[in-house]
Design a protein around this nucleic acid. Structure first.
Lengths: 349, 349
DNA sequence: AAAATCCGAGAAAACGTTTTCTTGAATGAC
DNA sequence: GTCATTCAAGAAAACGTTTTCTCGGATTTT
């Protein structure tokens, strides 16, 4: 039951039991053995609540994700959990399903549980929702593109690198009209990806038709809708880059529906490189953003923040690089639409 | 900071603050207002640990799943979380990745946190691992096929119904040689599905070729391997039923690789009906086992167990029905292999 | 051999709550 | 007008730990 019961049966004080369990200070081997035996006999497990009440350390980290049903996130959660186990931490996960109320509630619960830190892996949210955390000086780590905020660590994703690779890859396959399906543009991260796309296109001297920037919503349904739009354009793009893999899956699905063959009629590039990508038909070329790595970085950021007695005035910035993974969903542009230098100018208008 | 600070500033006792917060017993409206104002001002959130230490109720349920990276589980987690939020519970989720050590650790942590109940949604595990929970009389709910154990609730999945529908559907399409890719047969649930398949086949008068019972492992990779085997059989099956959708996705993937067209050359049925199923190419016919429903049942089972002051001697048994969802991955058997009555006997040998 | 030091282990305080017990003022009954 | 009753709010105990303080016996030092 409680430590008192153990103490009573072992005929020692509760202090000795506590010391035995924590292996701290010195306890005679003889006594220690006696105590351990009683603990085993009783199947006694210490009460974490009481423990952390007095120690002031909960050994819990919070993890807030956008929506657990998007396969991108479970990989992160798993990675986070794996490393948490190694470090004797527990995690309290919340899937906010994009509901500000849920986020607020979750933040509140985490504070009430006195979590030692919170990792926020949700692409875009109202930052004000986390003010409570900030004002309580609870270590925070965001996964985003923003500049380091005071006292808040940030894992910046280098979207540019992977996207540039994708654009170059498509250009090398003579694609000229490349569309980009973004996430909801209110999100900073979605905006950043789109900007990276535009910059990469300009860099390489390809024109971006504003019509070819389509706002999606990071879901498969969004991918379906987006492709429908794309197919209605008078000058169809010959390649599409999606800002996440779920969107790309939707695009593939709708292409099948409409008889558009990937990659023969349309080249497709995803983003995130979720595990599923390689099992798609055809296997999806995607821009990798290692979920395991994100999880590892986020956890370590929190851990080092917690272990540091004097918190760093500014948060630390970590950077995660993205890079293209080639598979079978991209191919040479259809013969009729291949890029020729002379065409370039014209199609830019 | 703490309730004392609030009490000091509002010039009341801590008891009054506690009463105000909990809205229990009577506290003068005037005082109540004064207290609430201070609470707001200070941004005071009560410490859950202290709370549940004295109240003896943690308001946490544990949720143990096999592997969060299998899309089947996130849907359950989301459902569980949704209903938990409504009921003011929090959940501690663990993805065990099939590691008994991880399960044991997780169980231990949950006991240490004094969870009020645990839902175990992992298809097959050593039950002994949960003895600690049982002996502490912590409400438990399993998702499985077993008979109700003493004091343990159980959500039995009626595999038979959905599988029978699938077999009948395939038979109606003149399939005769139907293969079944199971999960790891050490798992009770995997065994149950396979048995349901065999029984359904016999029921309808179709022979089961023992070679056509292939043991998979519930992963996409397992599906790939299984299909390779199947394609090597002298008398190829014309239809395959998989015991989960991930396996089916692997099968689709490998079919593509080998130039086997689904559903023209091979009909395919999955199991679970995860959301992804409808986005596959072609959309996957699958046996639906509603994840939301499982989550709801599991949560309610725990909740009613907790609320009941005298625990029921035996656990309650709940039943979830499965049923076939038709999509495009099944079609008429190839002309050469259609079932004829006269052939039936012969092919059974 | 006496004094000084060390150290193992118990007593008790503390953590932040809820809840029971107590108190004292106000209300109602006669 | 006195006494009983009610009820709001404070005091204090309790929850199960960790940790500081204290004590007393054993060991070391001279």
């Amino acid at each position: 039951m409680s430590i008192h019961e153990v103490a009573r049966r072992a005929k020692v004080s509760i202090a000795t039991v506590s010391r035995t369990i924590n292996g701290v200070s010195t306890v005679t081997p003889q006594l220690s053995r006696r105590v351990w035996r009683v603990i085993e006999e009783l199947g006694y497990y210490p009460n974490t609540q009481a423990r952390s009440l007095v120690s002031g350390r909960s050994r819990i980290f919070g993890l807030i994700v956008s929506e657990i049903t998007n396969p991108f996130f479970p990989e992160i959660i798993q990675g986070f959990e794996d490393i948490a186990v190694q470090n004797n931490y527990e995690i309290l996960t919340t899937s906010t399903v994009h509901d500000p109320k849920r986020i607020a509630l979750s933040v509140r619960r985490m504070i009430e549980r006195r979590v030692e830190g919170v990792a926020i892996v949700t692409f875009g949210m109202e930052e004000a929702l986390f003010d409570d955390l900030k004002s309580r000086k609870i270590p925070l780590v965001f996964i985003d593109v923003g500049p380091p905020l005071p006292r808040i660590s940030n894992i910046r994703i280098d979207y540019q690198h992977g996207i540039r690779e994708a654009v170059q890859h498509l250009a090398a396959l003579c694609h000229e009209r490349i569309a980009f399906i973004s996430g909801p543009l209110i999100l900073k991260s979605a905006m950043a990806r789109q900007r990276a796309f535009i910059e990469s296109m300009e860099e390489i001297g390809l024109a971006v038709d504003p019509n070819h920037l389509i706002e999606g919503d990071h879901t498969m349904e969004g991918g379906i809708k987006a492709l429908k739009k794309i197919l209605n354009f008078p000058k169809r793009p010959t390649a599409v880059i999606c800002s996440n893999d779920m969107t790309a899956i939707g695009v593939m699905r709708q292409s099948y529906e409409e008889g558009v063959h990937i990659p023969r009629d349309l080249s497709l590039v995803g983003f995130d490189d979720i595990r599923l990508a390689q099992f798609m038909i055809p296997p999806l070329t995607s821009i990798k953003m290692s979920q395991t790595e994100i999880a590892r970085m986020a956890f370590n950021a929190l851990l080092s923040e917690v272990q540091r007695d004097i918190p760093s005035p500014d948060g630390t910035e970590y950077v995660l690089r993205t890079s293209l993974v080639l598979r079978d969903s991209t191919a040479m542009a259809p013969a009729g639409a291949r890029k020729k230098v002379s065409v370039l100018k014209k199609s830019a208008e």
